[in-house]
Simulated assay, not measured.
Amino acid sequence: MNSKAVLSQAEVGQIIKAARAEAQANQWAVTIVVVDDGGHPLALERLDGCAPSSAYIATEKARTSALGRRESKSYEDMVNSGRYAFLSAPVLTSLEGGVPIVFDGQVIGAIGVSGVKPEQDAQVAKAGAQCLE
């Protein structure tokens, strides 16, 4: 039988804290969502001044990254490269800002961020995802 790490609330708190610090250092109002490896929400934090719709978008970015085992940007890149069939794929969003959380070579969850430019969302998400390394 295989075994793998799972995110506890302690790690989820660390991830949120690292992502929040990155967003606040840049004065970006974002929503940060952490999900488990099945895409189920473990935590959501919407910073002051962030649009309510970002909570939905950040969740879908995280879920897409967890289920796809890759950054959500890769799906956006596929569509932008002309693979329009991916618009009907069972991923939930093809927007940049979802990043898998990898531990010991396995995806154990993901983080999604929404509220600023796509590359800024990804920057915040990566700060959170990489804090456990």
Rank of each mutant, 00 (worst) to 15 (best):
Glu71Leu: 03
Thr31Gln: 04
Gln9Ile: 14
Ala19Ile: 09
Gln106Asp: 08
Gly105Glu: 06
Asp48Trp: 03
Asp77Asn: 05
Gln14Phe: 05
Val91Arg: 04
Asn2Asp: 12
Glu76Leu: 14
Gly97Trp: 10
Ile111Leu: 08
Ser72Trp: 02
Lys73Gln: 05
Lys17Ala: 15
Glu22Ser: 11
Ser65Gly: 02
Asp121Lys: 07
Ala122Leu: 15
Val34Arg: 01
Gly128Lys: 03
Phe86Thr: 05
Gln123Thr: 15
Leu7Tyr: 08
Arg83Asp: 11
Ala110Trp: 04
Val107Cys: 08
Ala55Tyr: 02
Ile108Ser: 02
Arg83Gly: 04
Phe86Asp: 00
Gln106Trp: 04
Ala23Ser: 07
Asp77Gly: 00
Ser81Lys: 12
Lys73Tyr: 00
Ile57His: 06
Val124Leu: 08
Ala18His: 07
Asp104Ser: 13
Val116Arg: 14
Asp36Pro: 00
Val113Pro: 08
Ile57Cys: 01
Ala23Cys: 08
Met78Trp: 07
Glu119Phe: 13
Ser72Glu: 10
Ile108Trp: 09
Met1Thr: 13
Tyr84Gly: 14
Asp121Ala: 12
Tyr75Ile: 07
Asn26Lys: 14
Asp37Glu: 14
Cys131Ser: 15
Ser74Gly: 00
Gln24Cys: 04
Leu47Asn: 06
Arg83His: 14
Glu60Trp: 10
Gly98Pro: 00
Glu60Asp: 08
